[in-house]
């Protein structure tokens, strides 16, 4: 059984996530439009597509910070620990959110309810297939699990409170903050899928595969720098390697 406080916590998480998603949706008109031009060689159009993707990423960062700040206990951490956790979990949560928006029927990921992108669109935005293919593989894999909103929200909370992130100081507090979400996910799954004992470990393994994806993403960031495709300041702060 789910304890009342667990049920309440899950409902609050889902409501928070909906609120953060809605805010981004309202900002949608501000994003540089995705160019309709079909000319793949046009430098201007390619630059615009890259800008479109990076602006969607910036909105996602803002959503993730909003969500983290509302997680009970997060603001009790030192500012440095908050930054250490967000710095590494941001890309992983973006990948979780992308997988949640993956539509197998059109093999596309839909951002902000009406922007759907397939692999080719990701490539047109300047990303390399060494990164695009694992994103879609992961999204397909997550889609096969048919997780609901509560499971995604709990996975994101668990992902944020990962005590083994680089530069985290107060490991004990981060672990203590993570535990209630792990327990809630475990109970929630046992109630929702009583006959599937493997679902919980399968979900935790998705968190492990996010680590691999994160390193593939770092290679992508490095490749962008080689192509002198500059990341906007906020993304550069989080992902670029600053000497």
């Amino acid at each position: 059984q789910l304890a009342p406080e667990q049920l309440e916590m899950i409902e609050k998480l889902v409501a928070m996530q909906k609120q953060c998603n809605k805010r981004s949706f309202l900002d949608r008109p501000k994003v540089t439009p995705w160019p309709q031009s079909q000319d793949p060689q046009n430098r201007e159009v390619r630059q615009q597509r890259f800008a479109h993707f990076t602006e969607l990423a910036i909105m996602s960062v803002q959503e993730i910070v909003d969500f983290a700040k509302q997680l009970p206990g997060f603001l009790e951490l030192t500012r440095e620990d908050q930054i250490a956790l967000l710095k590494t979990s941001t890309i992983e949560i973006m990948l979780l959110e992308s997988s949640r928006r993956y539509d197998p029927a059109i093999e596309s990921i839909t951002f902000l309810k009406d922007f759907s992108y397939n692999k080719e669109d990701f490539a047109k935005a300047g990303l390399q297939f060494e990164f695009i293919n694992p994103i879609f593989e992961f999204s397909k894999g997550m889609n096969d699990l048919h997780l609901d909103e509560a499971e995604y929200a709990l996975l994101i909370a668990i992902n944020i409170f990962s005590a083994d992130r680089p530069n985290v100081q107060d490991h004990d507090l981060v672990e203590r903050l993570q535990q209630p979400y792990v327990d809630a996910l475990h109970s929630y799954i046992r109630i929702k899928r009583p006959n599937d004992q493997l679902m919980f470990p399968r979900m935790l393994m998705k968190l492990v595969s996010l680590r691999t994806l994160s390193s593939v993403h770092s290679e992508q960031v490095f490749a962008l720098r080689l192509q002198d495709k500059k990341l906007p300041p906020l993304l550069s702060e989080i992902w670029d390697v600053h000497e």
């Binding site: 960062v61 910070v65 700040k69 930054i83 967000l86 906020l234 600053h242």
Partner: peptide, 16 residues
Amino acid sequence: PQDHQLLRFLLDTDEK
């Protein structure tokens, strides 16, 4: 160090 200025700003801002 004064790094992650923008991230610090997002964490400090309380939009509600």
